[in-house]
Design a protein around this nucleic acid. Structure first.
Lengths: 334, 334
DNA sequence: TTGAAAGCGCTAACAC
DNA sequence: GTGTTAGCGCTTTCAA
């Protein structure tokens, strides 16, 4: 901003830079009267410490990087808010990045953030190709939502949800409601979320001793780009009578397709989604959804990260947060 | 990360630090063969330039601060995505902050970001109490969504939408659809969004020569905290037959109230909202909404900011992006 | 309780 | 084309 730095303050206050620095860091080694005088001068001069210089010297920036696939996905929005709230409480700022699920973009972001010397990273991994240890060195990283399968991925704390279980419950409920040709539209099978949600779907059929029709499984992307097209195909050509959308971005595509074609939900087609949003309760038909503790995922990830930044050396943790199915109108055949 | 810095690279490559620095900055002053050698050494050593040191020296961090009231509001989510996309293209990172509309929190964020030497700031101002020039000095700031009325606020570029016009159109349509006791639930009257949307509401009544009933005007908050309670009161005690929600967070409270009380939309009550979200088109009843170009607001703000960072000295700009009303089921009495 | 001085990793005159 | 040198603004020994 202006050009008042620590030495200007020091001169004006007739003390050394060291003393000013001590006041800045609340060192108890400074006589209270001196400290008071220095603070007064700081105020008068409108002094703002340069955190770049501080960081350069002390190797901590009070900044963490947050890398998600797309903050427009309400799942990530809420997680990011959880992260930011805790970060703010701990006097940290966050740098937000969107990868759009592209491993290359993710890699570039990580490099940029490491160069900017963030104290740690929270990553919803886009892919498996990145070798995280090579990228971040010994900087702490917490993975959220997905466990990357790349090299060294097992060396970092990871926060997941009960994907398989949530998915199994949702599909089981559709089966019990009387639907039979139940389709799933999900994202890439490479990610934990992708294959675990698919696994839950398959398990539900197995448990009910029902046959699995592979043409009812659509693997697109979690960004929702291909969901509409997939839904159209399922409804028009595959004779499906229910769709399980593996996240809310996919659901939007399904809703669009259903509205266009004019299928009645839940009479002609059942519907269910992984990730519960507020409006799903208020619209008609209300939409059956698997709730994930998104905000808590964020706060948990951030609290883990803060512990690692503080130097915690305990073994790597992987936790699964619980999900809950809320059955609403869209999955109940009249 | 590790301890390889510019001098290590220089030694290993048998050149000076200057040369390494030049290679880093793609200076044309370096012989290609030398540059190639240096690059090779960098690669071998896994060298990552320290942006803190660079920023300290060069006074630019390639980082901008983004301050919104709440990223959970899809309006801001989309704007943030727009900002981040353009930032990424321009090789910038963003620091994201949520103020929850608290002037004090906003002030602390600004101070922190200025200390961290962001190159500029995009702010959806929480209040009027902050003197932005005092806070940011001569650092560029672009205001979005709201024009702060505080000291010196007129010195910064500002991106707004046609609040009054959008609101007027929405309420006019409700009137023309036959609703008469049309209520508005809006946020604080201090913000541009607050008073302009209210002004549009009032103008619609004036134009139609209809009386204005002050008991149908509820001024709560844009975070949506008080919307439910206000909606309950309007429906149960004020005999209102339509509600205009001044943003989507408020709409959720209204929907909740309507669902609980069991009023039929649009037969018993009309509904309309400022800010159009994808699901509003797919749920039943489809919700009439005023669309704002949220993503474009973000990219526009960021492009303005980049210009200012680059040193553009032109007069302060204030622009209004257009809004469009999409009439759907919720505002059409059968 | 305070200060002098070195140096974090980099860039930018200025010389050669 | 390349190197020498002096800081950017701060923290941190070490000494007093």
């Amino acid at each position: 901003m202006n050009h008042v730095n620590i030495s200007v303050v020091a001169k004006k206050a007739n003390v050394s830079q060291t003393t000013v620095s001590r006041v800045l860091n609340n060192s108890p080694l400074v006589k209270e009267s001196t400290a008071e005088k220095v603070r007064q001068v700081m105020e008068d001069l409108g002094y703002t410490p340069n955190e770049l210089a501080r960081g350069l010297r002390s190797n901590e920036t009070k900044t963490v990087g947050v890398i998600v696939s797309n903050v427009l996905n309400p799942f990530f929005t809420s997680m990011v808010r959880g992260i930011e709230d805790l970060a703010n409480k701990a006097n940290y700022n966050i740098m937000l990045c969107n990868t759009d699920e592209k491993a290359e973009k993710e890699k570039q972001y990580i490099q940029a953030l490491v160069s900017k010397r963030v104290d740690g990273l929270i990553v919803a991994s886009a892919g498996t190709k990145n070798d995280y240890t090579a990228l971040v060195g010994n900087k702490p990283v917490v993975f959220v939502d997905r466990r990357p399968s790349g090299a060294n991925a097992g060396k970092f704390d990871t926060i997941l949800v009960q994907n398989k279980e949530g998915s199994r419950q949702a599909v089981t409920q559709l089966i019990e409601a009387g639907y039979r040709r139940i389709a799933i539209i999900t994202g890439s099978n490479i990610s934990t979320t992708g294959y675990e949600r698919l696994a839950g779907y398959e398990e539900a059929f197995l448990e009910k001793h029902l046959p699995l029709d592979r043409s009812l499984i659509k693997m697109g992307d979690f960004l929702g780009h291909t969901a509409y097209k997939n839904a159209i195909d399922l409804i028009q050509n595959q004779d499906c009578d229910a769709i399980f959308a593996a996240n809310s971005m996919i659901l939007l595509g399904v809703l669009k397709a259903a509205a266009e074609i004019g299928v009645q939900i839940p009479q002609q087609m059942g519907l269910c989604v992984f990730d519960d949003l507020e409006w799903m309760e208020y619209c008609r038909p209300q939409i059956t959804a698997v709730r994930q503790p998104t905000y808590e995922m964020g706060t948990t990830a951030m609290s883990y990260l803060l512990e690692r930044i503080a130097g915690k050396k305990e073994p790597v943790r992987e936790i699964r947060l619980p999900v809950t199915l809320t059955v609403r109108e869209s999955s109940q055949k009249k």
